[in-house]
């Protein structure tokens, strides 16, 4: 650390000066970190207790003995109204939604953005506006008609009906368009002189160049897809298609309906629902932050 070895004149005069400012800063940051950390941590510790304790005493600060048991029951015991769905199935559905949504979005929006940015098309401007108008209206606003559309197409309780309508907004296309616009013009020109056609240029140059961008968007979209709630609630009524996030309310309700609510198991499921997106965000946070903050430019 450089800053600790440097001796500034002020410090030589007052060698034992306490930096009250820095202590204040750290105090505020630690309080903030606690505010953010405590609720999920308490969920974890509480999930390690048996149902009676949680029902009687509420959130627990210490680790109990039932952590493994609660997780095992939540993940592997069939539950729900039909007694056919377990945590593993919901976990799988969550991954299908998260990954399917992210991959689908990236593939479709990269292709569209490439077509809009790199081709001299008469209708490019029209396509641009047709696509980017969708940015104006989030799915929540048009939830009812979208549901009707899916129903008419017979796509309720299918992965297609779950994933594809979520892709029908231009966020990804917008990100990639912005990114492609920032790629130097000369790269495409050099490639043309080097004999690369439009498809070769896309595959050989543009996609490898976009790797970081793809990673960043994948993370954002994965988290977004994983955390979807309203749309899955409407589209999937068959418990076999429930994701963790969609199922959580049902589970909580069915657990709390009993005499002694199985809050331990419900919390275990909630934690399982948090872990994958949290891990992705924490481990790839540089890409994630870059993708998030540069997307608005």
């Amino acid at each position: 650390m450089v800053e600790t070895t440097l001796v500034t004149p002020a410090e030589t005069h007052r060698p034992n000066r306490i930096k009250w400012g820095a202590i204040g800063d750290h105090t505020i940051l630690i309080l903030g970190a606690l505010l953010m950390m405590l609720p999920p941590l308490l969920a974890l510790t509480t999930a390690s207790h048996d149902a009676v304790t949680i029902h009687r005493e509420g959130l627990q600060l210490t680790l109990g003995d039932d952590l493994g048991k609660n997780f095992r029951t939540a993940m592997f015991d069939k539950g729900g109204f039909t007694q056919t769905v377990d945590g593993m199935l919901m976990l799988m559905n969550s991954f299908i939604l998260g990954i399917g949504f992210a991959v689908g979005k990236i593939v479709i929006s990269m292709m569209a953005a490439y077509a809009i940015v790199y081709f001299r098309l008469r209708f490019a401007t029209l396509a641009f506006w047709v696509i980017f108008t969708t940015l104006l209206l989030p799915l929540e606003v048009r939830i009812l008609p979208s549901y009707e559309a899916i129903q008419k197409l017979g796509l309720t309780n299918t992965y297609t009906g779950l994933i594809v309508p979520l892709i029908a907004s231009a966020t990804g296309t917008f990100f990639f368009r912005q990114f492609f616009m920032s790629v130097p013009e000369e790269l495409a020109e050099a490639a043309r002189i080097d004999g690369a056609g439009p498809w070769t240029f896309f595959v050989d140059i543009l996609i490898p160049l976009s790797k970081t961008m793809i990673a960043a968007i994948f993370i954002i979209m994965f988290v977004f897809g994983w955390n979807q709630y309203l749309w899955p609630t409407l589209i999937t009524t068959d418990e076999g298609f429930f994701t963790l996030v969609r199922g959580i309310k049902q589970i909580v309700l069915s657990y709390t309906d009993s005499q002694i609510p199985e809050h331990g198991q419900a919390l275990a499921l909630a934690i399982v629902a948090m872990i994958p997106p949290v891990l992705v965000v924490v481990f790839f946070q540089n890409w994630f932050v870059k993708g998030l903050t540069e997307s608005d430019k």
């Binding site: 953010m36 999920p40 988290v223 709630y229 996030v245 959580i248 419900a266 997106p277 924490v282």
Partner: peptide, 16 residues
Amino acid sequence: LLMWVYAIAPPVAGFL
């Protein structure tokens, strides 16, 4: 520490 809660789904936050 301050950013990871971003990844938690709203209904899960509601359940907490």
